[in-house]
Design a protein around this nucleic acid. Structure first.
Lengths: 190, 190
DNA sequence: TTTATAAGTGAATATAAATTCATTATATTT
DNA sequence: AAATATAATGAATTTATATTCACTTATAAA
């Protein structure tokens, strides 16, 4: 027998992300994905049943990767402000160095390919993050508002700063990340 | 002669927005748009040269509409915090009651249909808004940081709250809008 | 009324994309 | 080294979508 070349999955994912960044889901055809990945069109169908499955697999892959980037080896025994700064920096670094992810998610969430159960599964790796917010609220560090509000502020600010950095309206370095974080912290701190 | 029925343009825009909301640009075909608008496919091509032109026209239409919603008859002679609250409420009301707009823009900005000159033209109606921020910074009301930072915070928080409201994680009323605004204000105030 | 002109139609055509499949190439196993 | 199972290929097929066009209908002007 001949084994599958698991590098190909990565190549396919990369190609898909690149094409999405450039042209969105509309411009992302199976033929172009294959060409960009350096394989034949038919080979795509050896690794994925069809386009829908390819897209949903990539979605889960990105979610898991992001959760790892943000949560792996996180030191929980530090003052909350530092902990949130750490989370903020990790999120920004992950988003900025992997901007294609955000671009992909935007398209995914409003596409005919989306699978609601897959979407829900994508949240699972982030559970520890929600627990941190809960705990910070209990200890009166963070505003006593519904989780959604905290979440909206963090996510919203993160998303927009990522875009600003990507569009080169902001240079991302220690100074700018401190300014940005202080704004976020002011928004959510008690 | 027979005149064009200008109501049809509105019907086409509405149909396009609805389809985009449901299925994104991928699921938005000319045949479906026509059917949803209650006209024949061919009629679309009387009002718009092709799909690209339809999409770019709709983009400009939405931008102008939003600028009107936010800026028309704005009372500039009030304390800055109230002025920003007014802007925040108007933006949220406009976004929430017209969520399809945000969904459309998300897809538009990363599609093969985008026309950079049209995109730039879409910013024009918002110039007065930028001037308000500038002035508030001069008067030391708002943090003395680059405009992009202020903008990222406002936009980010607005976007995320809109999504939260749309996904029914937050109910939008006087109370919740006050909480949300206080978070935003804390983020940008000096 | 009649006529001229453009709107409106939807089936037909052209184009493009997803998927299949007969065939070839390659890595394991015996 | 031969046999075998699966990966890989890319042209052919199927399916979907944008656009056109011959024709019909509605309206304004004559």
């Amino acid at each position: 027998m001949r084994p599958k070349d698991e590098n190909k999955v990565d190549a396919i994912y990369s190609a898909t992300l690149l094409l999405n960044e450039q042209l969105g889901f509309v411009g992302m055809t199976m033929a172009k994905i294959a060409k960009e990945a350096g394989i034949a069109t038919g080979t795509l169908y050896i690794y994925f049943k069809n386009k829908e499955e390819l897209i949903n697999s990539l979605f889960l892959h990105l979610k898991k990767q992001k959760a790892r980037n943000i949560l792996d080896d996180l030191d929980l025994n530090q003052p909350y402000k530092l902990l949130f700064k750490e989370l903020f920096d990790r999120s920004m670094n992950s988003s900025v160095s992997n901007f294609q992810e955000a671009a992909f998610l935007e398209q995914y969430y409003r596409s005919p390919f989306i699978d609601e159960s897959v979407k829900a599964k994508g949240m699972e790796p982030f559970m520890p993050f929600f627990q941190i917010i809960e705990q910070a609220k209990k200890e009166l560090i963070v505003k006593d508002v519904d989780n959604s509000y905290i979440f909206a502020c963090m996510n919203g600010i993160l998303n927009e700063f990522t875009k600003m950095v990507k569009e080169e309206h902001i240079i991302w370095n220690k100074k700018s990340s401190n300014i940005a974080f202080e704004m976020l912290w002011d928004a959510i701190k008690n």
